[in-house]
Amino acid sequence: MAEHVSTAVVEAELTPVVTAPERPPTVAEPPPPVRTSAAAVRPRTRRLAPGPRRPYARLLGPLLLLAVWSVASGAGWLDPRILPAPWTVLHTGAHLWTAGTLRTDLATSLWRAVQGFAIGLVAGVVLALAAGLSRIGEALIDGTVQVNRAVPTLGLIPLFILWLGIGETFKVVIIAIVVYIPVYLNLHAALAGIDARYVELAEVLRLSRWQFVRQVVIPGALPGFFVGLRLGVTGSWLSLVVLEQINATNGLGYMMFQAQNYGQTDVIVLGLLIYGVFGFASDSAVRLLERRVLAWRRSLNS
């Protein structure tokens, strides 16, 4: 009996104990994805550009000023002897145009401005290219132009009258000086601001002098050139106002000077409006030309 018990105990110790396999720990299922719109996921960006261009938007300011002037004149807030109403100025202009005096003065002023502007533009471009593309040219030209810029141009009028007389020549020369200075300064600054890496690239590609000017210099300097061109156009009209009041027998400035002697405020305001319209139109023409020529450039203005 004892042998049977010991044998059973030994067999029980030798028999492996089979246990049920352990279940892996349960993992919580992820919650279903929350559907969000693309606008909510995409980060918000602030629009920093000024936005698309509006056609004829630059006319808004002058038209608003004209509307305020008309309302103030119609309400009697403005003394007609100090500032006549817009319709009074238009009536005066129509009368002078019918009489033929306004047409003559207008043609004379335009011809003077065109002559002086053309001469000043050519002189400014030639001098800027000579000073911007050559160290010798810069040494000979830039200092002289800076001295000329520091001297008041209108202060040269008495000297030029002694040199050239009181005819048309001195008026055209003064206008040319007023025009060439901003053209030279802006074009020369644009040439000096061209990246030197473009010059090195042109040398590696073995471009000729003319190819370098045509493919690198001109495209790189055009933005600065147009800035100087706009300033030159405005300067031609500003100088013309003063010049036509000095020893002149015709022109818009002469018409305004004569109106001052007779107390004709409407004629003076008419002359100022014509100068303003000419300046605005010429500046708009240069802007349009700039957008067409520089259509390849991406900027805030484009």
Score class of each variant (00 low, 15 high):
L154M: 08
L96P: 01
A57P: 01
N261W: 10
L121Q: 04
G263R: 11
R46G: 13
L121E: 06
N261K: 15
V147P: 02
Q146H: 13
G124F: 00
L164S: 10
V17S: 06
W97S: 14
I141L: 07
L229Y: 06
L106T: 14
P25S: 14
F257H: 12
K171L: 05
L78G: 10
E168G: 04
H188I: 07
P223Q: 11
L191A: 00
A189T: 09
A131H: 02
A221S: 11
T265H: 03
I181P: 00
L294V: 03
R149T: 02
G155T: 07
T101R: 12
E244K: 00
L96Y: 10
H4I: 10
W111H: 14
K171I: 11
L106H: 05
T36M: 11
Y56H: 15
A72L: 13
A85L: 08
T101P: 03
L240C: 09
A99F: 07
T92G: 05
Q215S: 04
E13P: 02
A113C: 14
P25R: 13
A67C: 07
E244M: 01
L60P: 01
V89N: 00
G124S: 01
V277K: 13
E3T: 13
I136Y: 14
A57H: 10
V233C: 12
R58C: 05
L48F: 12
A248S: 08
R103D: 03
V213S: 04
T88K: 10
G235D: 04
T234I: 12
N186A: 02
L106Q: 03
R197S: 05
V172R: 00
G143D: 07
A259G: 03
G143P: 07
L78Y: 09
G74I: 06
T104K: 13
T169S: 15
W69L: 04
H95E: 15
G137D: 12
I136P: 02
L110V: 12
R206Q: 12
G251T: 00
I166H: 04
A28G: 05
A281E: 04
I82E: 09
P219R: 01
A189W: 02
A107T: 11
D79W: 03
D283C: 06
L300T: 09
L129I: 02
A131G: 04
Q211N: 10
T249L: 08
L201W: 01
G124A: 00
L96R: 03
V27R: 15
Q245N: 01
L270S: 03
P32M: 14
V5W: 07
Q264M: 09
W163L: 13
A189C: 09
F170L: 06
I157R: 00
W210C: 06
L96V: 04
E29A: 14
A281Y: 06
S302N: 14
R46C: 03
Q258F: 07
A176I: 01
G100D: 09
M255Q: 15
P43F: 12
S284Y: 07
L207D: 00
R112Y: 04
P24E: 15
L273P: 00
W77D: 05
T26Q: 07
P84S: 09
V242F: 07
P223D: 13
A259K: 02
V204W: 00
Q146Y: 11
G100L: 11
R197K: 14
L63V: 14
V5C: 07
W69A: 04
A12F: 06
L288Q: 11
L121H: 02
